[in-house]
Amino acid sequence: MSQVQLASYFASYSDILSLCEETKRRIGKNFDLKAFHEEFLSFGNAPVPIIRELMLARLQEENQDQRQNLVRNKVQVIYKLSVAKIVKGILRLPIESA
């Protein structure tokens, strides 16, 4: 193995380690090293910078989906509470006889 190969391997190793740390930081306590490796290896022999972009883009999409689901759930709760208040108010109205 030549010095150039060693430098290339070390640069890739550093990039992969950096990606792993970034992924850990973004995912937090739910980070799974095995899942990280499986996803990383699923890209085959693509260059590490390309894999990094793709993996971080996927994380960004997942975060946006989670935020949208959270907002959607809050809206549903508010809607249900509003409907419940309206129904409760209607049920309290006196019944008018004709």
Rank of each mutant, 00 (worst) to 15 (best):
M1D: 06
M1V: 07
M1H: 09
M1K: 06
S2H: 03
S2V: 01
S2A: 04
Q3L: 10
Q5W: 07
Q5F: 13
L6C: 08
A7P: 03
A7Q: 13
Y9Q: 10
Y9K: 11
Y9A: 12
F10C: 05
F10R: 14
F10Q: 14
Y13S: 10
Y13H: 13
Y13D: 06
D15Y: 03
D15Q: 12
I16S: 02
I16A: 04
I16H: 02
I16L: 03
L17M: 06
L17I: 02
C20Y: 05
C20Q: 13
C20K: 15
E21T: 09
E21G: 03
E22Y: 04
E22C: 11
T23D: 00
T23Q: 01
K24W: 00
R25T: 12
R25Y: 07
I27P: 00
G28T: 00
G28C: 01
G28R: 00
G28N: 00
N30I: 00
N30S: 11
N30C: 02
N30W: 00
N30H: 04
F31I: 00
D32F: 00
D32Q: 03
L33C: 08
L33M: 08
A35Q: 11
A35T: 07
F36E: 04
F36I: 06
H37Q: 08
E39T: 13
E39P: 04
E39D: 10
F40Q: 03
L41P: 02
S42L: 11
F43V: 06
G44F: 08
N45M: 06
P47E: 08
P47A: 11
V48E: 07
V48N: 04
V48A: 05
V48I: 13
I50P: 00
I50A: 12
I51H: 07
I51W: 06
I51E: 04
R52T: 13
R52F: 07
R52P: 05
L54P: 01
L54K: 14
L54V: 05
L54I: 05
L54R: 13
L54Y: 04
L56V: 10
A57Q: 15
R58M: 07
L59P: 01
L59T: 02
E61Q: 12
E62Y: 01
E62T: 05
N63V: 03
Q64N: 08
D65Y: 15
Q66P: 02
Q66M: 15
Q66A: 15
Q66S: 14
Q66N: 14
R67W: 05
R67D: 09
R67F: 10
R67E: 12
Q68V: 13
N69E: 14
N69Y: 14
N69I: 13
L70V: 09
L70R: 14
V71C: 08
R72V: 08
N73P: 00
N73A: 15
K74T: 09
K74F: 10
K74S: 11
V75Q: 09
Q76C: 03
Q76L: 10
I78E: 12
I78V: 15
Y79T: 10
Y79H: 11
Y79E: 09
K80W: 11
K80M: 12
K80I: 14
K80S: 13
L81R: 15
S82L: 07
S82Q: 05
S82C: 06
V83A: 04
V83S: 02
V83H: 02
V83W: 02
V87H: 04
K88A: 10
K88P: 01
L91F: 07
L93G: 04
L93I: 05
I95E: 09
E96F: 15
E96N: 11
S97P: 02
